[in-house]
Design a protein around this nucleic acid. Structure first.
Lengths: 131, 131
DNA sequence: TCATATAGTATCAAATTATATACTGTGAGG
DNA sequence: CCTCACAGTATATAATTTGATACTATATGA
């Protein structure tokens, strides 16, 4: 089942990291799980743009990589809870910084997205931190 | 030419960030440029696994996103220098943390992998590569 | 009986990303 | 003349990722 995602990053840990959370939905999933345990359809409702199939796949990969835990309750109707693993937790600061960077530096609010610019609404050269 | 990469991340800045540096080669390119200006073929030699075409494409996208600067010298043979832009610079801490995270948490050193571990190389147990 | 909710699979199609290979034009070196 | 290096293009193909749609089983509720 596993594609050989983990073959490519012979060169650098950077890719190892991105390999684990850099795909289209994984970062978002992990981000959502920062808030706590979620059931499958809860996640689905939180991320309306991801298809069921994609969500399943991404969750399985995250699980296989030890980033999240999947707990199945032998009930009917089925109940499955997803939560961050210890390892997944270690990504928290990184995820938040990534989020922050996106907010600070790529302030392009699309029609529906209402994220008010912090202060000096200068789209391009918002160089606040660490420079 | 531009695909609509920037359409998807209506939902969150996280994806905006990853959109700009989360692809297979971009992070590595940016990482390489942290050291300073590089010429095209220099980058190519630094990243033997990326094809010329891919390198070109990724560099152009990074340029279009304002992450790097491309300086063409009207000489022959041609000379083109790539360097981080101001915006690209702002990713530096993030890139280093990402790198660090990969090192700390995904310590699977494959046979050929030698990317000068900076200093405190944390010799944890590497989970056996299960592929 | 029928629909609903759960957490998925199964298929197929489309889009995206990556690779291989050959080619460009110029100047230098042999 | 032939070849190399430079910084790419062009073309075709392969691999991977994503999406759309339909389907599964079971309990509950109307």
């Amino acid at each position: 089942m596993r594609k050989q995602r983990h073959q490519t990053y012979t060169c650098c840990p950077l890719e190892a990291a991105l390999d684990v959370m850099g795909s289209k939905w994984k970062a978002t999933i992990l981000f959502r799980l920062l808030d706590g345990t979620r059931r499958f359809n809860e996640l689905r409702r939180l991320m309306p743009n991801v298809t069921q199939r994609m969500l399943t796949i991404q969750l399985r990969e995250l699980e296989a990589d030890g980033m999240i835990r999947r707990k199945v309750f032998p009930e009917v109707p089925p109940k499955v809870e997803y939560s961050l693993s210890e390892l997944g937790r270690t990504l928290e600061p990184l995820l938040r910084e990534l989020y922050q960077w996106g907010q600070t530096h790529i302030q392009r609010r699309l029609p529906g997205a209402a994220t008010e610019p912090p202060s000096g609404s200068n789209e391009r050269d918002a160089r606040a931190p660490s420079n």
